[in-house]
């Protein structure tokens, strides 16, 4: 009986959510401030940029690919967008519809870069790791060159409000992020394209033979990831009220860590947006709580690494259990 219950908990797709709740309860004991409304609002706000970027990454991971370039897309969109709209001589500053035009330019950059990733991977058969790694190097280099490594300030309120402001204590960012997540969830679970994504990840060859447009699917997922990166850039830039060429530089481990922690497989074919939400929640809880109890940055890195490794371990056990059950 006990074995069965344990097995059931491990096999549940809400395992990570349960872990979050337990962790929350334990940390609330150790550090009472952790459970205050103010801190929970902080946690919620801190989650949002990571959430949107990790959701895009999840879609790529399901196809068995990886998008290492997404954090550099965040950086380049942050700096280019800020340079267009800044009151210190941005060309779109003070222009009517300047802010929507800036956003359009940022999305255009994201879509082109994502499309390029997808085309290089499909049409030229290059491995996603190399394509997106070199893209990351090139794009982050460009961001630093373009800005002479200087951050850009003096951004209009209409530009930063999406990352900074709230309505009834709920950040605007929350509406944006959860609407996009909902759409991504529906796309993956309800549409033909969603089924293609899983089919490509499970077995690309079999998918192609059975008529799935593999190339088109892969190109689209990299565009989705890049677009999520652009939204992440809008949120982070607004939050700091600054365009920065090194924005999100250290975020990549959290992005992939959150997806894997949630249960999305690095080998493709398996993953859900909801799982990634749980993964992001867990990573953010760890980050916030360890910071609150005064651990140094380096200790937090060690703990976070250990927990992601542990998650991969639990994932392996879970897969074995599920295999036995099936």
């Amino acid at each position: 009986m006990l074995r069965k219950t344990i097995r059931r908990i491990f096999a549940s797709e809400y395992l990570v959510l349960y872990l979050c709740l337990v962790y929350f309860a334990v940390m609330a004991f150790i550090e009472p401030i952790f459970a205050t409304g103010e801190n929970m609002a902080n946690i919620f706000a801190n989650m949002l940029p990571l959430l949107i970027i990790a959701a895009g990454q999840t879609v790529v991971l399901i196809t068995g690919g990886i998008d290492l370039s997404v954090t550099s897309i965040v950086a380049v969109c942050s700096i280019v967008g800020a340079s267009l709209i800044t009151a210190d001589g941005g060309v779109l500053s003070g222009v009517p519809l300047g802010v929507p035009l800036t956003f359009a330019a940022m999305f255009l950059i994201g879509i082109i870069l994502g499309w390029f990733n997808g085309v290089a991977i499909t049409k030229f058969g290059m491995p996603p790791f190399i394509v997106t790694l070199t893209m990351m190097m090139g794009v982050s280099g460009f961001a630093i060159w373009y800005s002479r490594s200087l951050p850009i300030y003096n951004l209009p309120d209409a530009f930063v409000m999406f990352g900074r402001d709230s309505v009834f204590f709920i950040p605007y960012a929350a509406f944006i992020v959860f609407i996009i997540l909902w759409i991504l969830h529906l796309v993956l679970s309800r549409t033909l394209f969603g089924r293609w994504v899983y089919a490509v990840g499970m077995n690309a060859k079999a998918a192609r033979i059975s008529g799935v447009p593999v190339h088109r699917t892969i190109i689209r997922v990299y565009i989705i990831s890049a677009v999520c990166g652009v939204i992440g850039a809008i949120l982070l830039t607004g939050r700091l009220e600054t365009g920065s060429p090194v924005m999100a530089r250290n975020m990549f481990l959290d992005v992939v860590g959150a997806a894997v922690l949630g249960g999305t497989s690095l080998f493709g074919g398996k993953g859900k947006i909801v799982w990634t939400v749980f993964g992001v929640l867990f990573i953010t809880l760890i980050d916030n709580s360890l910071n609150l109890i005064g651990m140094s940055y380096f200790t937090i890195m060690i703990v976070k690494g250990a927990i992601i490794l542990l998650a991969a371990f639990i994932d392996a056990i879970r897969n074995r259990l599920l295999a036995v059950r099936a």
């Binding site: 205050t36 939050r239 600054t242 250290n250 380096f298």
Partner: peptide, 24 residues
């Protein structure tokens, strides 16, 4: 003294400062 190191990441530094504020 409560300590936090941002390792060159300004978003992380903002979160750390917000944590300090939450801790009053």
């Amino acid at each position: 003294m409560l300590e936090a190191i941002a390792d060159g990441d300004s978003n992380r530094q903002l979160e750390q400062v917000q944590n300090f504020i939450a801790q009053k």
